[in-house]
Amino acid sequence: MTDRAYEIKLDIFEGPLDLLLYLIRKNEVDIYDIPIALITKQYMEYINVMKSLNLDLAGEYLVLAATLTHIKSRMLLPPSEDEEEEEAVDPREELVRQLLEYKTFKEAALGLGRMTILGRDVFSRDHAFEEEIEGNGRPLMEIGIFELVEAFRRISIDTGRHDIMEIDIEKISLSDRINDIVDELEKRGELTFADLLGEMDSRRRLIYTFLAVLELMKLRIIKAYQAVPYGTIRIRLAG
């Protein structure tokens, strides 16, 4: 095989196990009885090509290279006395198990890809009018930190706040913000996430408010809800 052929193949591997599966298929050998010397040799050739091409070689490829070399050396050695007693374990066993498991999921991934996928094969109505219709009987679902972080990211981008040359006159403490939020919730019952962050004029205040919300959620003092993904986030006191 020429270097050119390697080059074409390289970026289609999803990792070292994928490369190994490819070599097993290419050589038409039995996955349960891998000719370890041959496969190791070819695997190393691929690794060396990757290195010579200065490709960013993921560490995982080297780990598997070491594993292969280790298995190869164990295959060459006569089984130790210990092993003979407990019916010598095939040094390839663990690797085969790992390969079969990976193969199963690789097939499952291809299978998922063949399904009818929304946004690729079929389409539903646009999700653009979410805000208007979301109150319409759809139950609110409690959401977690991740959705909040995502919403925070969107709000801080949306409002296009610039944090250049910000002079920090205002002294804000986290516990003050926590108390403010709880007070406000006791008064109004419910606040939207945008209500809370929208009024913020400085980035520092924005961040402190967000941290206060996270802290309150962690302490289970407040809960956040959403009717639809990316919809309005509503904050209420827990309990």
């Binding site: 999803e14 196990l17 994928d18 993921a58 995982e60 598997l64 990976y102 499952a108 991934a109 998922l112």
Partner: peptide
């Protein structure tokens, strides 16, 4: 979705609830 994303999604779908380390063990990559 890239093949890598599909493989990762497949592991999450079939093994859930699943830890990142478990997905990495199956796929052999970060």
């Amino acid at each position: 979705l890239s093949p890598a994303a599909m493989e990762t999604l497949a592991v999450v779908a079939y093994r859930q609830p699943v830890m990142k380390s478990e997905i990495e063990r199956v796929r052999g990559v970060d």
